[in-house]
Write a protein that binds this DNA or RNA. Sequence first.
DNA 1: CTGATGAGGAAAACCGGTTTAGTATGAGTG
DNA 2: CACTCATACTAAACCGGTTTTCCTCATCAG
Lengths: 348, 348
Amino acid sequence: MEENSTVSKRPTIKDIARESGYSKTAVSFAFNAPSRISEKACRQILETAERLGYIPDPMARNFSLRRHLSIGFLLPQVVQFSLQNPYTLQVVLGIGNVCEKYGYTLTLIPPLHKSITEAVRNAAVDGLITMGMQVEMEIVSVMQTRLLPYVTIDGTPDAQMPSVNIDDEQACYEMMHMVLEAGHRNIAFVSLSEDAFASPAKAESVPNKRMRGYRRAMAEAGLALDASQVLVSECTMEDGIRIGKTILALENRPTCVVAMSDIVAIGCILACNQAGLRVPDDISIVGFDNIDESSYIVPQLTTVDQPAKEKGRLAAEALFTMINKETLESVHMEIPYRIIRRESLKRL
Amino acid sequence: MEENSTVSKRPTIKDIARESGYSKTAVSFAFNAPSRISEKACRQILETAERLGYIPDPMARNFSLRRHLSIGFLLPQVVQFSLQNPYTLQVVLGIGNVCEKYGYTLTLIPPLHKSITEAVRNAAVDGLITMGMQVEMEIVSVMQTRLLPYVTIDGTPDAQMPSVNIDDEQACYEMMHMVLEAGHRNIAFVSLSEDAFASPAKAESVPNKRMRGYRRAMAEAGLALDASQVLVSECTMEDGIRIGKTILALENRPTCVVAMSDIVAIGCILACNQAGLRVPDDISIVGFDNIDESSYIVPQLTTVDQPAKEKGRLAAEALFTMINKETLESVHMEIPYRIIRRESLKRL
DNA sequence: CTGATGAGGAAAACCGGTTTAGTATGAGTG
DNA sequence: CACTCATACTAAACCGGTTTTCCTCATCAG
């Protein structure tokens, strides 16, 4: 049943060709290469297009030109958590700025109910940026099969995988060193959970690298490792609060909490406040990331500053280099970090 | 010069058809409707696909199926500012959650260097959510011409434009009323600037609606309007600081600042702190939005709570309703707000 | 034995653009 | 005048899938 009176379809290039008396080719040229047709033809075609309300279908154009004009960011967690984590948000901002510069859109790809692999199979993008990716993951082979350029932030460097990182092991080691120097001996260490699409624990993941830094510092200080002092947290303030409570309930309460994420550290501070403990007088807390909030909160948080926005920027620039089929100057980018000592760490 | 040895192309459905000895149709069925072919054929085809590393081209599929599986969010400002504004971020989160639920991606569309109109013309999405849009804007006619469903948040309701709003005029009026009740007579009002893609000032834009609430409250209190007390700010903390400094430099310094955005209000608080003034003892400051930070900051901010995430959720749900060609229950959604009185407003 | 039915699969049309290859015309050149 | 060349344009192929249409063959009821 044809109802083209009510369900009016958009006009296509063919309609404009017919109506204006020119060919499809001419119409295409009128929009994309006006110099290749006469002024008169161009004018007539554009006028016809205007009259019929013709706008070239972006999907058809992109399909024909084999491009998407968008790059994807694979959210490490559900949307809610990913963007609520200020660190991740800064990364997204860094990526977004570069997209803007190149006239691309930024597609946020949540792990679909189906699976993250399915999401990557279907992603309508020219390239992907991921966080915490390791080369053994299934999605890596999907991206490779699709010949889709990709870069990982906070992932495991590999010949197959361009990456942007800081020296996580050393950063964590230095932080621990500072805490130990300050006289702490009973320290709770709050590690990061592996990401949503994590594969079997891999020696080179960020959580593991930091863990190595932790162990090294502990060993150097001659301290034994105590499994009950190592906890794992999601990267959310809620989970930080939960972890904080857990720590406060430990038999042998630590004098310092070293959290691998500021947002978790802030959650711990809140938990302490709720429990009536003062930071840092009753307990010291340090974090990692140096998000903006860390300098606002009372007490100001001791943390490791890592330039999140810069990570995003570098990853995106690298991705565009690959999209343009140029070769990367360096496949593994390591950028500097900085230990920032503030009020939340007290000398014992 | 053919270099198919190195520049290997991805296999297409045709290659799988040839290689497996079946037709393109059969291959398509193997992936999308296995029940329509024999088990044996399906097995052979999938096996061939696996062997050759075939993944159906998402672009081609989407093109053929006339869909994108993505909805767009038109960033009201450059990426940097949009997402750094916690209010906007909450809106994005609300939208993102819904996308996740429907298995769609969320495309962030920055105003391209070209123009925002160009961005909308080219957007590869099934629908668009915008902020602060008014029906006279050029992009509205572009979306209509493209037959692209759209919803606006904080825009001007119109028969042509589904919208999600609070009652901005009344909310602002009530806030002003409370400030006047508290005894303030010398009040600085910090209005919002119109959005990036603003059209000629329209009576019904959010900034204007709030301004009406402001005027009504002032009139009721029998106060004359003083143009020097009305300022306009970008929605960034930096600009908030700038505005704060400007206000402190006014000859006749106000006893209260009413800002139309918490992030600006917070900027004002910082400016006061820097100038050695205490809030609210030396000057009261109130905001609008009730972002999370407003309850953390010292002093806690008096503000209007508007459910940003809920706005995003409603807009996205409405958009999906339209994408599915169902009819909206209500085209103009107005949701409740709440005045929240906290420390930053002092009774004179 | 015959005709109807349904399953399995192939050919071709289609989605809406871009691009290649090619044609007709007129101007310029030796 | 014949030949080249540029201009302005068109027809058809192409991008890689999906979907419609149709064909063949086996099965089964009458």
